[in-house]
Design a protein around this nucleic acid. Sequence first.
DNA 1: CGACAACTTGACCATTATCAAGCAAGGTGG
DNA 2: CCACCTTGCTTGATAATGGTCAAGTTGTCG
Lengths: 248, 248
Amino acid sequence: MSIAPSVIAHIAPVPPQAYAHPMPSGRWNEMAKGACTEDSARPAHVVAALGAPVTFARNSEIFGDDQAAENVYVVVSGVVRICKLMGDGRRQIEAFCLPGDAFGWETGERYRFSAEAVSECRLVRVKRSVLFARAGTDPELACALWALSFAELQRAQEHLLLLGRKTAQERVGSFLLDLARRSGTTNASHVTELQLAMSRQDMADFLGLTIETVSRTLTYLEEQGTISLPSSRRVLLRDRSALRRLDS
Amino acid sequence: MSIAPSVIAHIAPVPPQAYAHPMPSGRWNEMAKGACTEDSARPAHVVAALGAPVTFARNSEIFGDDQAAENVYVVVSGVVRICKLMGDGRRQIEAFCLPGDAFGWETGERYRFSAEAVSECRLVRVKRSVLFARAGTDPELACALWALSFAELQRAQEHLLLLGRKTAQERVGSFLLDLARRSGTTNASHVTELQLAMSRQDMADFLGLTIETVSRTLTYLEEQGTISLPSSRRVLLRDRSALRRLDS
DNA sequence: CGACAACTTGACCATTATCAAGCAAGGTGG
DNA sequence: CCACCTTGCTTGATAATGGTCAAGTTGTCG
């Protein structure tokens, strides 16, 4: 049931031993002081330790809307999209899950959205029954569960502001900055490079725009010198202050 | 520290004794089976039992963005709005909290949004330090915490679809149905009556529209015979199937 | 009754969507 | 190795939804 340290290690640089000795009352005390933030990779590890690794090919479905909600997943590598579909085909991507993120939380019996692999990805699959049964006796796990689903809530809340009140330029700018924060690499001359795992259509469905508007906006930002697009899936953030102005 | 039963009683019809005898491993076992839904008022009680009642006047601030996050609140009566503001004054209301809802969750040291009383309201204020300290040793409380913040997440996720992909009519329709589900009263002839606690501006900022569009859309729905507006703050849902078609 | 806030309505405008080509990169078969 | 096809992306022209600005109306409260 437990997974190899080599797999877990990809989530973050915290060594597996770090959670080998659960504390008496878990992490709740630190949470009370607001001290859990500096250690944000830990909850993923605590949960991942209870599951088994699985891999999914690009564009394959991890689970579908309305399926029985049996598992929770932690991303080890790759990118996952969480989607909601409307009857007529309109799609909203609620989140892109990157390494260290968890998804598939439910209180009811069925998933309320589908999850698909944006790129080839490795996940840890944890049985919900195992997770919740243990949470009843293991405060550290209970805290980890709360922290992980709370992280989702925070992202969702930021996203609400974006979808409700931001312009197309602001949406794209915020998106690029968020990706940079979560997965970008910055070089010596302060240029951040991003590899976009997702298509323009994915970006559009995440940002509440059309594919054409996303494309036009990226072109515009490049004309302004704010970003460069060496290829359609690679972005260089040249002027972060201009992007931050858009992020507001 | 504990609040009077008469205050708690307004949240839901579950008597206070119901949680006087905590179960050995809390509610996690039920959660594992997806059985927590039928009992959704309980988490609010479990948390509220640790706090003290407070009241806020109409339009007063409960806490502000960036303030120290010391408390979590449970709504007993009235309506609370959770807001995010942008530098230039654009506002997004992330949620309206009704009796039984909890708000003010944070992992960090500061709130990331403000909360204001839409109508005069009674709340239970619970110290975060108390809550988290107890959660470490009380699995039932840990479960309640998770259930309450998870309920927020679910609402936020539904809202993402609304803001990202729905038309103005669909937004207003979904909003009315959601309010009806949470607070409406249906009479013998299947007409549901709603009392709107919030202004048109609040609705607009919640739905990602302008006040004018909200007003026009309501007028249009009334012309179609889908709703009636006996006064600007009272709505009768006359044709729920038409609304549900909009909800999709 | 008057003042003010909240709401509605109208006319016009802008941002973003839609529809339609065209282009570029990557893979396949001849 | 090159023509061909497919897929994903970009660009252009036009349309529509919802936003803006402005004027009225309703309702509430002193």
